[in-house]
Each structure stands twice: as C-alpha cells, then as structure tokens.
C-alpha cells in the first residue's frame, strides 16, 4: 500500500508539471494580449508596444514560464496584471459561490439519485422501476441551461418565490439571501448531475444483484433487500465513488453554464472574463489550480477506491 501511495504521488507531481506546461503554452496561442486590452481602440501602436515592454510580454516564453512556475512552487500563483489582485485571493472569493453551488448540487443529486437508483434496480421489472429509469433518461437529455431558463421563468418571474439572478452584494454576510439565490441554480445543476448518478447507482446495484455471493446470502435466509443492505451496498458504492470523482470536472463545467444563466459571480464567470481580457498571468494560475484540484481529487478517489474495495487493497 505504501509503495502504491508513493508511486501514485510521484505520478501526481509529474502530471501537475505537465499540466502547467500545457496550460502555459496553450494560453500563448490566444491572439491579442493584455497590452491591447489596456490600450483599447484609441491607443497608438507605439503606446501599446510600450505597455507590452513594461509588462515583460516581449521576453522569451521560457523566461516567462520560469518566472511563473518559480512563483507557483513557492505558493504564489500570480497576480492580475489589470488590477493587481492575487489569483489565490480571487479564487477564494469566487469559490465562496462556486463551492457551495457545486457541493449543494452534489448533495441534492445524491439525495435523490441513490434511493431512486436502488429502487430502479431492485424493482427493475416493475412499472415503478421503469418509470424511475425513464425519468433518469429524460433528466440526462435535458440541456442544463434550458432547464435553468425555464425555472427562472416560472419560479422567479411568474410566481416570484426566488430571485431571478445574481448573488447578494455582501455575499454570505446575508445568509438568507445567499441561500435563496442558490436554490434555482442548485436545482438546475442537481437535475442533470442527479440523472447521471441515478443511472450509475442503478447499474452498480444491478451488477451487485447478479453476483453469486448475493444469491448465497439469500439462500442463507436473508430477504433480497436485507441481503442487499447487509452486503450489497458497500460493493455497489465502489463504482459510484469512482464516478463521483470523475464528476468533479463535469461539475465545474456545469457550474460555468449555470453561473452564466443565473449571473452568479463564480469561478467560471471569472475565467471567461479573464480570458476575454487576456489577463493570462491570472488565467494560467486559475486553470492550474482547477486542473490540479481535479488531479488531486482523482488521486484521493483512487486511494479511497483501494480502501473500500477489498479486492484492490492487497494489490500493488
């Protein structure tokens, strides 16, 4: 196990380095630069060139990369060239919206995906199981942004139960307002995520139901449900946990769309704005942190996977 963890950790570090090079180079493909953003459509070419020189954008790429990665290693992910704010500070501020948005959506999604998924599997042959499965299929097929738009139209504009868009100016200092702002985004995101999870829970439980040892347990006198609860769920949880880890990347992407629909000042919205402004020093820090987070979560999920799956625990 220790050997495995060490090897896996070494791989993680290599992956992070590769990601940093990739992020840095890919962003350099973007046409235009921040000097042009600062100069706008009235500055002369000479003025823009002067700004470019001041910012060191005319140095060789290798030097710029070395500068950046040197900071990252010491924990400094960079600053915005435009307003001087630090990447980690801004990410923390935006994560106060995106974090609860994604986490709440996952909780909500699990809250209906797990019971419904089990029902859909156990009662597979019945009307109920079929219905639940159909709902899941339909939920996956609905475009997230479209669902969001319709929810706003009904619950915010027509019946006015919830705010149509935005997040309180003072953020979580107004907890009631903040929560109300997130209800519709949560529902929107949880619908698509939940529908995906439902399908996984269903197939995982189905898989378990077909296993020989479960039949043995039933033969020993357990009821089907009893056997499932006693032995099956832990086994069914293995693939579901793996999927949940992979879903993190999807959640971030889904959150970007939802943030746009509901005008939430989150990570996704910031990323789009920063790319638009060519504030690359900031963008590369943000992307590296996000990509890094996905890789680290993948690492942790792998470890968790080993811990709950008895078959893998002994393997190297």
């Amino acid at each position: 196990m220790t050997l495995y963890v060490l090897r896996r950790a070494a791989l993680l570090v290599v992956s992070l380095l590769a990601a940093s090079v990739l992020v840095f180079l890919v962003l350099r493909l973007l046409p235009g630069d921040i000097a042009q953003t600062i100069g706008g459509i009235k500055a002369t070419p000479a003025q823009v060139a002067a700004v470019r020189h001041d910012l060191g954008l005319d140095r060789p790429l290798a030097a710029q990369y070395a500068d950046w990665i040197g900071g990252v290693v010491t924990g400094d992910f960079g600053r915005s060239v435009l307003d001087g704010t630090s990447v980690s500070g801004q990410l923390a501020e935006k994560f106060a919206v995106t974090g609860p948005l994604a986490a709440g959506a996952v909780v909500l999604a699990l809250a209906f995906a797990v019971p419904l998924g089990i029902v859909a599997a156990v009662r597979r042959e019945s009307r109920l199981g079929g219905l639940v499965n159909a709902v899941g299929q339909f939920g996956i097929a609905l475009p997230t942004l479209w669902v969001g738009l319709l929810l706003v139209l009904v619950f915010a504009v027509q019946v006015r139960w919830l705010p149509a868009q935005g997040f309180p100016v003072d953020g979580w200092a107004e907890p009631g307002q903040a929560l109300r702002s997130l209800v519709l985004p949560w529902l929107t995101l949880a619908l698509s995520e939940g529908a995906v999870l439902l399908r996984f829970v269903r197939s995982a439980v189905l898989d378990v139901l077909h296993q020989d040892w479960l039949r043995t347990a039933r033969a020993k006198g357990h009821t089907r449900t009893g056997a499932l609860v006693r032995h099956g769920l832990r086994n069914a949880a293995v693939p579901v946990v793996a999927v949940l880890g992979l879903q993190i990347a999807a959640l971030v992407a889904g959150a970007v769309v939802v943030e746009q629909v509901f005008v939430l000042p989150g990570v996704g919205q910031m990323l789009i704005t920063d790319v638009g402004n060519r504030d690359l020093d900031k963008v590369q820090g943000e992307i590296l942190l996000l990509t890094g987070a996905v890789l680290v979560i993948g690492f942790l999920v792998d470890l968790a996977h080993r811990l709950i799956d008895p078959r893998l625990r002994s393997a190297v």
Partner: peptide
C-alpha cells in the same frame, strides 16, 4: 467603497 469583481 467596494468592488466585487464579476458582479458589482
């Protein structure tokens, strides 16, 4: 008095 980037 304050600038919440991306919103207000």
């Amino acid at each position: 008095s304050g600038w919440k980037r991306g919103s207000s």
